[in-house]
Write a protein that binds this DNA or RNA. Structure first.
Lengths: 336, 336
DNA sequence: TTGTATGCGTTATCAT
DNA sequence: ATGATAACGCATACAA
């Protein structure tokens, strides 16, 4: 039997014919083997083996109404952090029989809405989404109109009834800034990236929370979440502070590079800290003091919550906020 | 109408009923609007709008035999290089209406075979695969028995009729090793990773090609393709050579770190080069001299070839080998 | 131009 | 324990 692509495709009918049984028996051998006699079961199994048959998932889905498909929408499929989250979610869900469609928006909210529609018409049973912007009303409207099971991961849209799993961005930045203050840093600069996502706003808030009303001389500059941005922002500094807090590790690393080119030594002259603890940060020179997020765990948790949603279980906490950990390495020097 | 998940699902029937036409007319409005009178067309369109109807892709696929689904199998969904390849392929294919399922094997060939089966039963129309090991006979057998359209990307299994897109690994390592020899390096050590994949073997071959019969004192050590492996291997070196060639950038960076801890200065005392030009290598201290592969282009090309396969076009070159480029930065010093 | 009826490959219901 | 058959939602050949 040949389909449109010229592929040789065996189906339940051909298996039944070869085994000399009805198609219902074949179906039973696959879905409920115990209900078939040993004799027929073995016949059917051999036929399946011989023909290299495997059930057509499409037909199965149409009939059962269950695709066992989960969709992911993330801002950038090239960013290892997002993929580690996805791995976490997959590790939880794949042993429960799900398959995954992963889509990247390139940080474009219009594309995000489009992908939502695509996944919907692929009949995914659930979705895990890391939002691409600060808001996307088309997206939110579509979600509300469909009752699709969804979980937001790491970044969310506000005013939404979608459960959320994230990390305590504000708390993390606050912790590491507190550490800076406790070790005698009097003037501190925060280098933010784009401020449109929920996580970026939270990090900035953590910095402000830590620094205000404590007699600290502080300033905030906005750029992007890249090495180059950290570099440029730092090069333009009129006055070098006691410490610089990067909105993420890349920004911090860029700042260190600029500082070194400007003749300052880290941490001797300036302390620098980041946020993320990305793969490379422990190998930088000097190794970067930063905040570690439980990335993988975040994904795992998102997978778990989606699974609860899918199975009609009561989701206890609507929002789950995971805690961060300060990783002390060698870019901070006490100035007491 | 409500499906098993409790979702409100409108179907072609409900649209037809509301519009007061037959289901074939609705189908025509969607697939071939010009064949329907203006009057009915507008009625149907309003009904579609009102109900928020979109066609069930599952049913459509079952009927037409076309899923517009492409599957990817890669060794590790957490590795940015693989994902950049995928992005290349997607950029070519998505404007042609395809959707993508991405699966990672965790470098496990058994899992690889399982994923192949999964994708097959999801009725993907084509697949792009980066092989997880040196061989996988179950995988190869299954592929041959199905006529699935497939392209190997970056890593391949031998003896296969599957088209392949890769880079000239051997040529790349040869080029950079030649450069080392031409700049007066007399003793050179190659630090390989696992030697089971096709690309790892090719890189080693490039090194040997460059070094032999030229009076060079050379040695090869095997470890893994990680920072730690480069570090450990280097720490165990009895005698420090003029230059070290890392099987990839991570290994080279690990070697540099070990060297620096052992009191050697790069490139003053030893030259070190890598392979990949991964994202971070230009920011390392000192910036790493390495070989750049056209990662994205490789994926784009793989997508293009798969598309040709899918459309029955004649694929001119069965194998496509892309060229590499040596990136000179600051970890090599001339010793002439 | 429009409608009726068939079948895609399954699973599930109902007989036997 | 096994088989015949309806139904899932859609596209399409054929009839009108």
């Amino acid at each position: 039997m040949e389909n449109k692509n010229g592929n040789i495709t065996s189906n339940i009918k051909s298996v039944a014919k070869l085994a000399g049984v009805s198609i219902s028996t074949v179906s039973r051998v696959i879905n409920n083997p115990d209900s078939v006699s040993e004799k027929l079961r073995s016949k059917v199994k051999h036929a399946i083996e011989y023909l290299g048959y495997h059930p057509n998932q499409i037909a199965r889905s149409l009939r059962t109404g269950s695709t066992k498909l989960i969709g992911f929408i993330i801002p950038d499929i090239t960013n290892p952090a997002f993929l580690l989250m996805i791995k976490g979610a997959e590790d939880f869900l794949k042993r429960r029989g799900y398959t995954f469609i992963v889509c990247g928006t390139d940080h474009n909210t219009r594309e995000e809405t489009k992908l939502l529609r695509t996944l919907l018409s692929q009949n995914v049973e659930g979705m895990i989404v890391t939002c691409s912007g600060g808001q996307n009303s088309d997206f939110s409207k579509t979600v509300e109109s469909t009752n699709i099971k969804m979980v937001f991961m790491d970044r969310r849209y506000e005013n939404s009834k979608v459960p959320y799993v994230g990390v305590d961005n504000a708390g993390g930045v606050k912790k590491i800034t507190d550490h800076l203050i406790e070790t005698g840093h009097k003037s501190i600069i925060y280098l933010s990236g784009e401020r449109n996502t929920s996580s970026a706003r939270e990090r900035l808030r953590g910095f402000i929370d830590s620094v205000r009303n404590r007699g600290i001389d502080f300033q905030v500059f906005y750029g992007r979440f890249t090495f180059e941005s950290g570099y440029d922002l730092t090069k333009r500094l009129k006055k070098i502070p006691d410490a610089i807090v990067g909105g993420n590790d890349l920004v911090a690393l860029g700042a260190i590079e600029a500082l070194s080119q400007m003749g300052y030594c880290v941490p001797h002259d300036v302390s620098v800290v980041g946020f993320d603890d990305m793969f490379y940060s422990k190998y930088s020179r000097p190794p970067l003091t930063t905040v570690r997020q439980p990335i993988y765990e975040m994904g795992y948790m998102a997978g778990k919550i989606l699974w609860q949603l899918l199975n009609g279980k009561h989701v206890k906490k609507h929002d789950v906020i995971l805690q961060t950990e300060v990783i002390l390495r060698e870019t901070v020097k006490s100035r007491i």
